[in-house]
Amino acid sequence: MFIFVIFIGIWYVSTINTSTNSSPPSNLTQEQIEYQKLMGKDVGVQKTTGFPSPIQMAQAIGKQLSNPFYDNGPNDKGIAIQLGYSLLRVGIGFLLASIIAIPLGFVIGMSPLLYKAFDPFIQILKPISPLAWMPIALYTIKDSSLSGIFVIFICSVWPMLINTAFGVSSVKRDWLNVAMTLEVSPLRKAFQVILPAAAPTILTGMRISMGIAWLVIVAAEMLVGGTGVGYFLWNEWNNLSLTSVLFAVLIIGVVGMLLDMAFAQFQKWVTYVE
């Protein structure tokens, strides 16, 4: 809290200093002033850095949050609507990724042979920046919104796949032996022994995936445009509205934190103490 107050203080002081240091020179003739104006040096007008002060920021935040759902056409939508679009894309992409990555990771983790077979592909595909898939996605899918979802899918799939496979393959031998001596059916073993044993590792993978997906969606929406917080951010930059840009940055940070906290909570539910 103290750090926050200091930060606001420094911000305030730095914006004050720059906005008051130029006073209009009074010893110029009318012609000289006009000449200066033509040269683009607007005397008499206070020169600022253009960087908003904390008070302007607070006003902008208040204004945006007081009416988050307005919709004045494609270039002017409330922040909640933009966030909704982004979260929807992340949600769909992430869900698709879990539907594929977790069962596949399960199978790969259970079989050392499949693990070896899939490993080279995973190792090659994993380090590719999700945005590098964008042109391929745009060309094949031919729909910008779906391409955004695809990019989220492709970036969330790897951490989940790798963590699930790792979690499943490192389930304690003892627990598997217990299941074997009890002649537990494969399905029951998968759901009652392996899944709970690997759940913390799987959830870690999902948490990492969600973090990456939230990073990527902003960039993807900047590229694709149309809707979403990434588009909002870039649009406000084009409007040279720094308060809105800063506001968008703040919102992205807060939402990212909330998503991470949600997954931390899920992790807590499935974690067991040995």
């Binding site: 003892d174 627990w175 032996n177 002649e183």
Partner: peptide, 19 residues
């Protein structure tokens, strides 16, 4: 030939499922 319910095993490390 393989594990069976006819033989109960107590493991050195108890091997209880912690969840």
């Amino acid at each position: 030939k393989g594990p069976s319910l006819e033989r109960g095993v107590v493991f050195q490390s108890h091997a209880l499922m912690p969840w």
